[in-house]
Amino acid sequence: MPLIQVWMRSGKDKAYKAAISKSIHQAMIEVMKLPGDDYFQVTCELEEENYIFDPNYFGVPRSPDFLMIRLSFNARPAAVKQRLFETIADNLVKSPGLRREDIGMIIIETAFENWWVHARAVDPDTGTDSRIGGA
């Protein structure tokens, strides 16, 4: 049950936001082997005065389209997380057409026992949802 949060500057249309959501979710399915219905995202649109970042963050020019994405889920190996970052970035470049320079991501990991939702089928050996593939 990953929780995905996206922060962006306000003003983009519904199709643009849907493309961001789909691009992230497709990467989660591909890399983490999530079932298609394991999908919960929150998009926060902020006005310029409330979305503050250096336009040359890490010495790289960033545009007003800069996204910050926080992915919260149970622990995964470093290689899986790196592959997820790259796949999300690749997908967002394809659709909605973001520049890699305008994408920032962070993963927050939590213990398996710290997630709950009614009807979740937990594998007693791994502590993960029993529908998740071997990521």
Rank of each mutant, 00 (worst) to 15 (best):
S95K: 14
E109H: 10
G133D: 07
F58G: 01
V93Q: 11
E113Y: 08
E49D: 02
D37M: 10
D102L: 09
A121Y: 01
Y39Q: 13
H118F: 05
V31G: 04
T128N: 11
V6I: 15
K17T: 11
P2E: 03
R83K: 15
V80A: 08
E47R: 12
P2S: 11
T110H: 07
T43R: 02
D125V: 12
K14W: 00
M68V: 01
N74C: 13
L92I: 12
R62N: 09
H118I: 07
F66Q: 05
E30P: 06
Q26C: 07
A78N: 12
M68H: 09
D13E: 14
F73Y: 12
P96H: 12
P77C: 08
V117W: 04
D54L: 13
G36V: 09
E45R: 05
D37K: 14
E113T: 13
K94F: 03
E48F: 00
D102S: 06
R9F: 00
S10L: 02
I24V: 13
E101H: 08
R76V: 08
A121T: 12
G104C: 08
G97W: 05
Q26S: 12
E48I: 01
K17L: 07
I88M: 05
H25L: 03
A18R: 12
P77F: 02
K12P: 01
N74L: 10
Y39H: 15
Q26V: 04
N91S: 10
A121E: 11
Q5E: 03
Q5D: 02
N74F: 09
R76N: 10
S10E: 13
Q82F: 02
I107N: 01
M32C: 15
V93I: 14
G133V: 13
V117D: 00
S23T: 10
R70T: 03
M28F: 14
P64T: 04
I103S: 02
D129A: 12
G97I: 09
D38A: 12
F58T: 01
L46P: 01
F53E: 00
K94T: 07
T43Q: 15
E101G: 08
R9T: 07
